[in-house]
Amino acid sequence: MLEARLSQSMVLKKVVDAIKDLVQDCNFDCNDSGIALQAMDNSHVALVSMLLKAESFEPYRCDRNIALGVNLVSLTKVLRALQNDDLVTLKADDAPDSLNITFESSTADRISEYDLKLMDIDQEHLGIPDTEYAATVTMPSTEFKRICTDLQAMSESVTIEATKDGIKFSCAGDIGNGAVTLRNYQNVEKEHLNVDIELTEPVSLTFSLKYLVNFCKAQPLSDRVKICLSNEVPLLVEYLITGTSYLRFYLAPKVRD
């Protein structure tokens, strides 16, 4: 059986809020190392990959592999009841029909209990090749969100170019062109504002802004975001959750027709 208690319960809500517009039904795959999720969007352009490691929970117990087939719209309805400092506990049998979710207020004077019906989801797992990315950019997540949102107002697509001079996000639309360039930036006092660009070779790739803006719904999870690029392979956008738990998004590029 599964029993997993999360003190940073808002993490669960933020993860679900970040992915529910991209994927609807997905398996939460539980085993002794933690709770994982991998799901592609309907158009097979983007992929969500989440891992909440066992260390993120206290206690965490899962004796065997359990797949929790969850409709995220339904889970969102349950998570509406979650309040800021609540502890959340997830419980399920080995072959569960439902997921038991308990919220406890930090003062332990309120316990809310929900059973969410589960579904059988036949989901293919994709092998994601280990990639040495040509460019890795770590930057404030709010900045990334602003750039994507601003450029989406002008165009459907953005070209991301990483060179030794910086990282340039540019777009061309009916009303004209726009571009934002970021350079390496170090702020010793406010490290969360740093822009770190690691480059082994120049990269230029084009992506749909609709998906990137969607990924930015994960912004509340972390004040930093990591963007990994290599020519002619999918983009990786990563938000670290707590410790080494993560939420990753992959996006296939657009290529010249």
Partner: peptide, 14 residues
């Protein structure tokens, strides 16, 4: 114009 690639051409089922 540019054409959207599919992720399945990069990542294959396990």
């Amino acid at each position: 114009g540019k054409k959207q690639q599919s992720l399945t051409s990069f990542f294959t089922p396990k």
